[in-house]
Design a protein around this nucleic acid. Sequence first.
DNA 1: CTGAAAGCGCTTACAG
DNA 2: CTGAAAGCGCTTACAG
Lengths: 342, 342
Amino acid sequence: MKKKILIHDIAKHLGVSIATVSLVLNGKAREKRISDTLAEKVLKYVDEVGYKPNQLAKSLRTGKTHVIGLVVEDIANPFFATIAALIERKALARGYRILYCSTNNDTTKALDLLAMFEEQHVDGYILALPNGVEAEVSALVRRSKPLVLFDRVLPGVLTNTVVVDGVAGTYVATQHLLAQGFTTIALIITQLEQTQMAARQQGYAQALREHNQPELVQEIAFPQEPEQIVLAMQRFFEAHPTCDAVLFATNYLGVSGLEALGRLGRRIPEQIAVVSFDDNDLFRLYSPPVTVVAQPMETLAESIIGALLNELERPGTTDALVQIQLTPQLVVRQSSIRPVAL
Amino acid sequence: MKKKILIHDIAKHLGVSIATVSLVLNGKAREKRISDTLAEKVLKYVDEVGYKPNQLAKSLRTGKTHVIGLVVEDIANPFFATIAALIERKALARGYRILYCSTNNDTTKALDLLAMFEEQHVDGYILALPNGVEAEVSALVRRSKPLVLFDRVLPGVLTNTVVVDGVAGTYVATQHLLAQGFTTIALIITQLEQTQMAARQQGYAQALREHNQPELVQEIAFPQEPEQIVLAMQRFFEAHPTCDAVLFATNYLGVSGLEALGRLGRRIPEQIAVVSFDDNDLFRLYSPPVTVVAQPMETLAESIIGALLNELERPGTTDALVQIQLTPQLVVRQSSIRPVAL
DNA sequence: CTGAAAGCGCTTACAG
DNA sequence: CTGAAAGCGCTTACAG
């Protein structure tokens, strides 16, 4: 068990001062007029003995941890898992680590996580939060903490945001269903109080309004076992036998929806057409393949990390907010194509 | 913007010493014979002003960060995403945060991550690693770092492990296929050098050997685009038209396999029976539903975090290693049932 | 219980 | 460039 080597040991061995070693390691050799020869000697020896500065001490002194706090709704949700994987890779490439947590849409848990991240002195925040935490996030903004909200924003909180245009997404999807000739189009949605869901409802409502068609919206309460969600949907479809198309507002509703329709023995798209927000393996490989409103995952992740790094590495200036809205893409598959033979 | 409050401010305001405040906050009031009245006064005021000790300073002093480093193969893989979600929840409940990273099965990246975690002074490690990092992990073990390997272990590294019995998993699955009367059973697998994959191959080989059936194993190189994997499988199935059953050794191989069989127009299970390791929504809802070897996710997560906390909170004693092997469960669905009418 | 102090391992302004 | 020192914000042994 080798003893932990300290900056002091480096300095002593090389016969230079601690300050010299520290300055060289922090790239301030030139600035502080340390000769290149000496700087190289230091770097060479540091590399040789594998000296790594104690990050805790460094962080305590500088106030920087190079850790980013990532809050998602649920890391087991494919949308968030994919985004997390992409963000992690991009952050790591820029020298930042990710401390992550899931809120499971619980406001209390979200507040705890924000407090915890603060205690850990994360350098920046990437957040997909439930409502009810506006005051705390505003406080972070006020204190100029680097921060990006994604997926959904918070009413009244003015900060950096990266979202996907939910209105356009469901508008286009609903138009598509109408164009196919479906007449009774249901929207199954959850957490309407969240901005991304409100947007998805709006796009749906707008398209129907333009065609003078009535809305048929079923909201499903969120924190529930999948089985409960499936049962709720079974009840809904049984109560609405004339419904000939359905739009699921998010991936896990789509999955539960397919399960519910399967149990009821409804044939897709002959008896009911299906479209879901978010793409994944299941929708692509299902029989029939499911039409989806796909979010641009790569661009989303790139925009999020870009916006945050912009804040993290700004030279302390007052810069404009970054507010990005990306456009989702309708991927038409068989589940929403009206059969030719009626 | 409120000024950060320090332990010194608390002490001054209450007219007590810093030591008193610190001892009370660390639950050493009784031990240090501080009166309950005073202790309560301190706690009350601390709560009132919302004082939170600076964790960096605390960590620098105590050497404890209450952060656990979690290394997975890929957080976007449903198996790892699910495990991560469960571990995170259980760790948080015990006061630990999770710093996570994906290796994508890249040995160099894995080494970087281990170094990074060490720099961050994580208290403990939960690791699913690629091969080639045995020396570094052994070094951690030698230095008594709390550590648990899961999913796969490392040859020659003696430490805490939590794995699922891969031999039993594929043995039972293969037996099932044989019992159904399938004769040419292929195994599609990857990374045979990893212990969990080697075990899965073993179980398959053993079952076939007992029935004097030949093996038909196709290994797929891992770090590949999904599309490349699908194409490789298409080639395999075309090259082996007599193959009437296939066992996929892990979830993403199963997903790609369904895609490949779909493109080739092979009917399941009429033309080919399918079983995959790992369960997920896709396998459950696919037409036909796919038979799987399901890992006990909850128990797995519970065992992992339990083993680690056991190390983290032991009173510095020499305790026995924890080596847990859980049994997977064969969930028989339609994809592997031989059609009655031939 | 208090008070003063050392120490965790760094960074950095300062005088020379 | 060096050397001595302060300071980041804690914890804890020590003398009283």
